[in-house]
Amino acid sequence: MTTRPVPELFSRIVDTALDRTVVPGFTAVGLGLRRRLPGWPADPAPGALAGRHVAVTGATSGLGRRTALDLAALGATVHLVVRDTTKGERVAAEVDAAAGRPGAARVWWCDAADLDSVRTFAGRFLAADLPLRAVVHNAGALPARRTESPQGHELTQALHVLGPVLMTDLLLPGLAADAGRVVLVTSGGMYTQALPADDPEYRHEPYSGSVAYARSKRGQVELLPVLTERWAPQGVTVHATHPGWARTPGLDASLPAFSRALRPVLRTDAAGVDTTTWVVASEPAPEGGHLWHDRRRRPTSVLPGTTPALADRVRYWAWVAGATGLAP
């Protein structure tokens, strides 16, 4: 019988306590404490991404902008996949200046909720013949009212699930060329919701933007096993990362009361993207198919009634495959 060394066991106990009590674990307090615990994974080496290409959606502000800056600081050429190219060019100039390299960032137009736009973008990107180390699906929205994508899908599902799945599937040739990593940036809100297998489009009950957002994020993590099986034959791994509670323009706009109440302990944007950067740049790659928060694997369900039956996951994936036109 083997036993864990006391420092490692102590670290696990403290880390789990932070995670389960939510408020300290999701705020700046949690990351600050965890960094000081034994066993904290090493930072990616300087220049870890030199010569590599990474695509980041929703890169004009908040966590997407910070992800682009931090990946470029490690040597990556960052492809900013954005709806507003004017803002994208401003961020690209900022990334170039911070990295000290002209061309450290390039701007691509794409509406990640519009499946036709996703197909057009993927075709243009593949035509550039660039190997992809990673795609970071960061684009997000929390609409106050039920809104539909150009294809008629509920917006949070289209933006957080359908668009990312289709985009990744189309970009597999580029990802396979560099043992690529796919990161779905999720949210702790998903812990409060079950998988909406019966009503993914949110048609049959009064709409709540925050609930729809959390359900779509639940969908991301529940698809991890399915997407791992689908993309692993190409040498591509898929991960979900939970940034904790970070102060961003999106949080201030969509949940202003929450943002004001927790402002003293909210994470910075750099702290919010720490685990995403680590997943993309660390060697060897973290194990695929899992949810990560503060550089550790996390359970995908902690509340009763939020763990889906296999049949629910199968039905949800069948809906995703049908909506995106992919073979299930």
Rank of each mutant, 00 (worst) to 15 (best):
Glu154Gln: 14
Trp109Gly: 12
Thr2Pro: 12
Ala281Gly: 05
Leu255His: 13
Thr168Lys: 15
Ser301Arg: 14
Ala309Met: 08
Glu94Thr: 11
Arg145Tyr: 05
Gln193His: 11
Gly62Cys: 09
Pro102Met: 05
Arg119Asp: 02
Arg295Glu: 05
His293Met: 13
Leu115Pro: 00
Ala257Gly: 06
Arg106Thr: 02
Gly39Met: 03
Asp96Trp: 00
Thr120Trp: 02
Asp252Lys: 11
Leu74Ala: 05
Pro44Ile: 02
Val161Phe: 13
Glu89Gly: 11
Gly64Met: 06
Leu69Thr: 10
Leu326Ser: 03
Pro102Gln: 10
Leu130Gly: 01
Pro164Phe: 01
Gly75Glu: 05
Ala76Arg: 12
Arg146Ile: 04
Ala197Lys: 12
Val320Gly: 02
Arg124Cys: 00
Leu31His: 11
Val161Tyr: 12
Ser259Lys: 08
His290Thr: 01
Trp108Gln: 08
Val182Asp: 05
Arg36Phe: 02
Thr275Asn: 03
Val211Gln: 11
Arg267Leu: 08
Ala311Asn: 03
Gln220Pro: 02
Leu18Pro: 09
Pro264Gly: 05
Ser282Arg: 14
Gly51Leu: 07
Arg230Tyr: 06
Trp292Ala: 04
Lys217Arg: 13
Tyr213Met: 03
Ala144Ile: 04
Val107Tyr: 11
Asp178Gln: 10
Leu326Asn: 04
Val78Trp: 13
Ala50Thr: 15
Val6Cys: 07
Arg90Tyr: 04
Gly25Leu: 09
Ala240Tyr: 14
Thr120Asp: 12
Leu255Lys: 12
Ala104His: 02
Pro38Asn: 06
Gly51Ile: 03
Gln193Thr: 15
Pro41Thr: 08
Ala134Pro: 04
Glu148Thr: 07
Leu69Asp: 03
Arg297Glu: 10
Val14Gln: 10
Gly305Lys: 15
Gly152Leu: 13
Ala309Tyr: 01
Arg83Gly: 07
Thr85Asn: 09
Leu251Trp: 00
Ala42Asp: 15
Ala323Cys: 09
Pro24Met: 11
Val95Cys: 09
Ala104Cys: 11
Arg315Ser: 12
Ala128Asn: 08
Val302Leu: 11
Thr275Met: 06
Ala179Gly: 15
Asp199Cys: 09
Arg35Ser: 08
Leu162Pro: 00
Asp129Gln: 14
Arg267Tyr: 07
Gly32Asn: 14
Trp109His: 15
Ala246Phe: 01
Asp252Asn: 07
Leu262His: 14
Ala134Lys: 06
Leu132Asn: 10
His242Met: 15
Thr306Tyr: 09
Thr120Gln: 11
Phe10Lys: 10
Arg119Asn: 07
Val22Gln: 10
Pro225Met: 02
Pro24Gly: 04
Glu154Met: 13
Leu33Ala: 03
Ala271Glu: 12
Thr324Trp: 13
Glu283Val: 01
Arg106Glu: 11
Thr307Asp: 02
Arg145Pro: 00
Phe121Cys: 10
Ala127Thr: 06
Pro7Thr: 06
